[in-house]
Design a protein around this nucleic acid. Structure first.
Length: 321
DNA sequence: AATGAGCGT
């Protein structure tokens, strides 16, 4: 359990303490030795670098002090956090939001064998509103003492807010300048293409720095296609972008999360040792039975391939496992 | 130059 603000003089709406955190980083003591020579030690400097996050989002009218409504049992209040470096442990993450007084718990996922931080974790807040606030306020803003931005999202199995089943049409964007963020990339495209759903700049997890490329997702296929020609060479930040088709034609096998790509299909089963049928989801609308036959035929003898009419998923049955 | 990862007890 993290430190909570007391139930609080219920009468007195209190402002959270000024963002004067990190005066004594408790986790400096707890930093594990670099587990491997090639991983970089945390930058040992600049605690105060946390620049004020965009002040554009006014705090919701909900006041801190007047007793948070007790979170109901099923209230969604867990965020996912990613792109973590190995030294970003629970204490560090908690300290990033400690001044909000709204952190209930933090769990960073570690490798079972090595106990190395896997690069993501979960932040439970005291309420759904708190989670939403922190997501809106911090996502994409610089992490304190990290040369990277927060990557936050709703924890997916907690329900989250967005349930968007519509397909994505994704492009690859290369040649990105070092300062390009998800938001910049997204807005650069959204200015011309309203169907832009989001963008992601790929971050090297070991360094926290951009890999110089990313992806932009469109809701509208025609905008995706236009963007590939019209935006090639357009500037984002200081450099012209190179735009191309995202090579991942994103057929995903399984349901909730991509387990395999179109290029790298990984049959997945439900634990039934006799099941020789795999499910293929997220197909582009123009994918036909024959595409699946060709794609999966190289892995074994096929008995049957079926994409039900009008569906964006299908089934591939093999003669054996 | 480079074509992600990112959901736990």
């Amino acid at each position: 359990m993290m430190q909570q603000p007391g139930p609080g003089g219920a009468m007195l709406p209190q402002q959270p303490p000024p963002p004067q955190q990190y005066q004594q980083p408790p986790y400096m003591m707890m930093m594990p030795p670099p587990p491997m020579a090639q991983t970089q030690p945390p930058p040992p400097h600049m605690w105060a670098q946390h620049q004020a996050h965009q002040a554009s989002i006014p705090p919701p009218q909900q006041q801190q002090g007047q007793g948070q409504p007790p979170a109901t049992a099923d209230e969604v209040r867990t965020l996912w956090i990613g792109d973590l470096q190995y030294w970003m442990d629970e204490n560090y993450i908690a300290s990033c939001f400690a001044h909000t007084g709204e952190v209930a718990s933090v769990k960073i996922i570690r490798n079972k064998q090595t106990s190395q931080i896997e690069g993501y974790g979960f932040i439970e807040l005291t309420s759904h509103g708190a989670a939403e606030r922190i997501l809106q306020t911090y996502n994409g803003t610089p992490m304190p003492n990290g040369e990277q931005n927060f990557r936050l999202n709703w924890a997916s199995f907690s329900g989250g807010d967005k349930r968007d089943d519509s397909p994505d049409f994704t492009i690859f964007v290369g040649d990105l300048a070092a300062d390009v963020t998800d938001f910049m990339l997204q807005e650069t495209f959204r200015a011309h293409f309203p169907s832009v759903k989001g963008a992601k700049v790929v971050i090297d997890r070991l360094t926290g720095r951009t890999k110089g490329y990313g992806f932009v997702r469109f809701g509208d296929e025609s905008e995706q296609l236009r963007a590939m020609t019209e935006m090639n060479g357009a500037f984002c930040s200081t450099r012209p972008m190179r735009v191309g088709l995202a090579s991942n034609k994103k057929a995903v096998v399984g349901q909730q999360y991509p387990k395999a790509s179109y290029e790298n299909p990984q049959p997945q089963n439900d634990g039934d040792p006799n099941n020789t049928t795999i499910f293929v989801g997220n197909l582009d609308s123009n994918v036909m039975d024959d595409h699946l036959k060709e794609l999966f035929g190289q892995y074994g003898q096929l008995l049957h391939v079926k994409i039900p009419a009008g569906k964006r998923c299908g089934f591939v049955q093999f003669a054996d496992r």
